[in-house]
Amino acid sequence: MDVCVRLALWLLWGLLLHQGQSLSHSHSEKATGTSSGANSEESTAAEFCRIDKPLCHSEDEKLSFEAVRNIHKLMDDDANGDVDVEESDEFLREDLNYHDPTVKHSTFHGEDKLISVEDLWKAWKSSEVYNWTVDEVVQWLITYVELPQYEETFRKLQLSGHAMPRLAVTNTTMTGTVLKMTDRSHRQKLQLKALDTVLFGPPLLTRHNHLKDFMLVVSIVIGVGGCWFAYIQNRYSKEHMKKMMKDLEGLHRAEQSLHDLQERLHKAQEEHRTVEVEKVHLEKKLRDEINLAKQEAQRLKELREGTENERSRQKYAEEELEQVREALRKAEKELESHSSWYAPEALQKWLQLTHEVEVQYYNIKKQNAEKQLLVAKEGAEKIKKKRNTLFGTFHVAHSSSLDDVDHKILTAKQALSEVTAALRERLHRWQQIEILCGFQIVNNPGIHSLVAALNIDPSWMGSTRPNPAHFIMTDDVDDMDEEIVSPLSMQSPSLQSSVRQRLTEPQHGLGS
């Protein structure tokens, strides 16, 4: 029994001894940790006062410096006190997940390849973020970090730009207890964004957000305005092209109309020559008939004078003969009235020469109109080809070629109108001259024959008349068809009918 009691006491004593040793060891460790923490804080404070003595007594600045020092320690893998190029590049790629850190790398180092804690602190103090207000930090939280649900907490804590380094380091107390961020992804996102802002300055999105919006609005307005302008120009170009094509079609119709007119003019001239020949034959025939009538009257007179026994018949025959003579005298007077005045042959040749010289100047004017028309046609064809290209319509709308071609078409039409008026006036004037003179002027042997017949020096006439060419005029020349008939041919039928009527009546009387 005593043995059992003793054994229990030994065990209890051993447990108490072991517990005492454990408590003693724990207290010694706590004392050691407290001592090392105090030494670390003293070291940080001493270093901060050495680097930035004016701010070393500010608790907030001291906390920010400690956060900057921890960031530098995080980047300094070899713990030599300086962050070199390789260490910063590795940190950007692995910790901040930048696949192309060239720009960030140059911004961080600049011309200094080794970055110490002092360099990093001075860079942070010179950053724009260091002077941010609470509102600017909240704006950064909303737009860049995209965590607007913590806006009220940031405003309540009055977190300005000075506190940004403390957000950039992993601090459970700061993010969990103070900021009350329960979501781990939110804490990590805030820490990475803050670290990027401390090292490289304010984000471009935050700094140029309004400018970007303004430029976007301006670009949209310019784009819409450009599209509207292109649409208006395209519609104007199509309308202008439609008008130009309509004018061009009018020129083609006028060309065909003048071609038909020239054919009718040539045909009328041929008919005029035929009528002139018929007139000469008719006059000769009338003279022959008059002579035959005179001979017949003389023969009847002689027969009736030789027959004294038939006085009654003779008297009747003499009366008939007197009627025939009276008819012959009237026919002769009618014929003489139409051919009583004949212009000198020299006057006819001079008038024919005048007509040919006028035709020369008319042909020159006509050729100029043809050239203008050809230029207008070529310009229209070029515009047609340009319209078939990809940007042809837009190019035509913004060039002056369309207006130039339109002006050329209008100029050609005006020139053709002048040529039309000149042709109309010339035909009418020479027709009236032919009526008054009674001989042909338009139809003549040609300028060379006339110059030779009148003994004129050929050098006075200049160049010879160009051959009539096919040219274009407007449709108002169609009503000239009825005026192209020679006035002499219009007189011939009346002359034929009057003479024939007077010759036929006596012959019928003789026949009876």
Results as ranks from 00 to 15, higher is better:
63 L>Q: 15
63 L>S: 05
63 L>D: 14
63 L>R: 08
63 L>T: 13
63 L>C: 07
63 L>A: 10
63 L>G: 02
63 L>H: 03
63 L>P: 03
63 L>E: 13
63 L>K: 10
64 S>Q: 13
64 S>L: 13
64 S>T: 12
64 S>H: 12
64 S>V: 14
64 S>K: 14
64 S>F: 08
64 S>I: 07
64 S>A: 15
64 S>R: 08
64 S>G: 06
65 F>I: 09
65 F>W: 13
65 F>H: 11
65 F>S: 06
65 F>L: 02
65 F>M: 14
65 F>E: 11
65 F>N: 13
65 F>A: 13
65 F>G: 14
65 F>T: 10
65 F>P: 13
65 F>D: 13
66 E>Q: 06
66 E>C: 11
66 E>F: 10
66 E>Y: 10
66 E>V: 05
66 E>S: 11
66 E>H: 13
66 E>T: 12
66 E>N: 08
67 A>F: 10
67 A>L: 01
67 A>T: 02
67 A>R: 02
67 A>P: 03
67 A>Y: 11
67 A>M: 12
67 A>S: 02
67 A>H: 11
67 A>D: 06
67 A>E: 04
68 V>I: 05
68 V>M: 09
68 V>S: 05
68 V>N: 11
68 V>A: 06
68 V>F: 06
68 V>K: 12
68 V>T: 13
69 R>K: 07
69 R>A: 04
69 R>Q: 08
69 R>D: 07
69 R>P: 03
69 R>C: 00
70 N>D: 01
70 N>E: 10
70 N>V: 14
70 N>T: 07
70 N>W: 14
70 N>S: 02
70 N>Q: 11
70 N>M: 13
71 I>G: 10
71 I>C: 11
71 I>L: 11
71 I>R: 14
71 I>F: 03
71 I>S: 09
71 I>M: 05
71 I>T: 01
71 I>Y: 09
71 I>V: 02
72 H>Q: 04
72 H>C: 07
72 H>W: 10
72 H>S: 08
72 H>F: 08
72 H>R: 04
72 H>N: 02
72 H>T: 10
72 H>P: 05
72 H>V: 08
72 H>D: 05
73 K>H: 10
73 K>I: 04
73 K>W: 11
73 K>F: 08
73 K>C: 10
73 K>Q: 06
73 K>Y: 10
73 K>G: 08
73 K>M: 09
74 L>T: 10
74 L>K: 07
74 L>E: 05
74 L>F: 01
74 L>G: 05
74 L>H: 08
74 L>C: 12
74 L>W: 10
74 L>A: 10
74 L>I: 03
74 L>N: 09
74 L>P: 03
74 L>D: 08
74 L>M: 02
74 L>Y: 10
75 M>R: 04
75 M>C: 12
75 M>Q: 10
75 M>T: 03
75 M>G: 04
75 M>L: 01
75 M>I: 02
75 M>K: 00
75 M>N: 10
75 M>S: 06
75 M>A: 09
75 M>W: 09
76 D>F: 11
76 D>I: 15
76 D>V: 06
76 D>P: 11
76 D>K: 15
76 D>Y: 07
76 D>E: 08
76 D>C: 15
76 D>M: 15
76 D>W: 15
77 D>Q: 09
77 D>L: 06
77 D>F: 09
77 D>M: 06
77 D>H: 03
77 D>T: 06
77 D>W: 03
77 D>S: 03
78 D>I: 15
78 D>N: 07
78 D>Q: 14
78 D>Y: 06
78 D>K: 12
78 D>G: 10
78 D>V: 09
78 D>W: 15
78 D>S: 13
79 A>F: 02
79 A>P: 05
79 A>S: 00
79 A>Q: 05
79 A>E: 01
79 A>L: 02
79 A>G: 01
79 A>Y: 02
80 N>P: 11
80 N>S: 01
80 N>W: 09
80 N>D: 03
80 N>K: 05
80 N>A: 08
80 N>V: 07
81 G>D: 08
81 G>M: 15
81 G>I: 14
81 G>L: 11
81 G>Y: 14
81 G>C: 05
81 G>W: 14
81 G>Q: 15
81 G>R: 08
81 G>N: 13
82 D>G: 09
82 D>K: 10
82 D>Y: 04
82 D>N: 03
83 V>Y: 11
83 V>D: 12
83 V>E: 04
83 V>T: 09
83 V>H: 12
83 V>C: 08
83 V>N: 09
83 V>R: 04
84 D>V: 03
84 D>S: 07
84 D>T: 08
84 D>C: 06
84 D>K: 11
84 D>W: 12
84 D>F: 09
84 D>N: 03
85 V>R: 02
85 V>D: 07
85 V>N: 08
85 V>M: 05
85 V>Q: 05
85 V>P: 07
85 V>W: 04
85 V>S: 02
85 V>H: 07
85 V>Y: 05
86 E>P: 14
86 E>W: 07
86 E>F: 04
86 E>I: 09
86 E>D: 02
86 E>L: 04
86 E>G: 03
86 E>N: 09
86 E>S: 09
86 E>Q: 05
86 E>M: 07
86 E>R: 06
86 E>T: 13
86 E>H: 09
86 E>K: 04
87 E>I: 05
87 E>F: 02
87 E>Y: 04
87 E>S: 02
87 E>W: 10
87 E>L: 02
87 E>P: 13
88 S>Y: 01
88 S>P: 05
88 S>L: 00
88 S>I: 03
88 S>Q: 09
88 S>M: 02
88 S>F: 01
89 D>I: 00
89 D>M: 03
89 D>T: 02
89 D>N: 00
89 D>S: 00
89 D>V: 00
89 D>Q: 05
89 D>K: 06
90 E>P: 10
90 E>W: 04
90 E>M: 05
90 E>I: 04
90 E>K: 00
90 E>L: 02
90 E>G: 00
90 E>C: 08
91 F>W: 14
91 F>V: 10
91 F>I: 07
91 F>K: 12
91 F>R: 13
91 F>Q: 14
91 F>M: 12
91 F>Y: 08
91 F>L: 04
91 F>P: 14
91 F>H: 14
91 F>T: 15
91 F>E: 15
92 L>E: 15
92 L>N: 15
92 L>Q: 10
92 L>H: 15
92 L>P: 05
92 L>M: 03
92 L>A: 15
92 L>W: 15
92 L>Y: 15
92 L>T: 15
93 R>T: 10
93 R>L: 15
93 R>A: 15
93 R>Y: 10
93 R>D: 14
93 R>E: 14
93 R>F: 13
93 R>I: 13
93 R>N: 11
93 R>S: 09
93 R>M: 06
93 R>C: 14
94 E>V: 05
94 E>S: 14
94 E>N: 12
94 E>W: 13
94 E>T: 13
94 E>C: 12
94 E>Y: 13
95 D>A: 00
95 D>E: 03
95 D>M: 09
95 D>V: 03
95 D>N: 04
95 D>Y: 03
95 D>W: 10
95 D>F: 06
95 D>I: 04
95 D>G: 06
96 L>C: 04
96 L>S: 08
96 L>W: 14
96 L>I: 04
96 L>A: 13
96 L>G: 10
96 L>V: 07
96 L>H: 05
96 L>R: 06
97 N>V: 04
97 N>M: 05
97 N>P: 11
97 N>Y: 00
97 N>I: 00
97 N>T: 00
97 N>K: 00
97 N>S: 01
98 Y>M: 06
98 Y>W: 01
98 Y>Q: 07
98 Y>C: 00
98 Y>V: 02
98 Y>L: 01
98 Y>F: 00
98 Y>N: 00
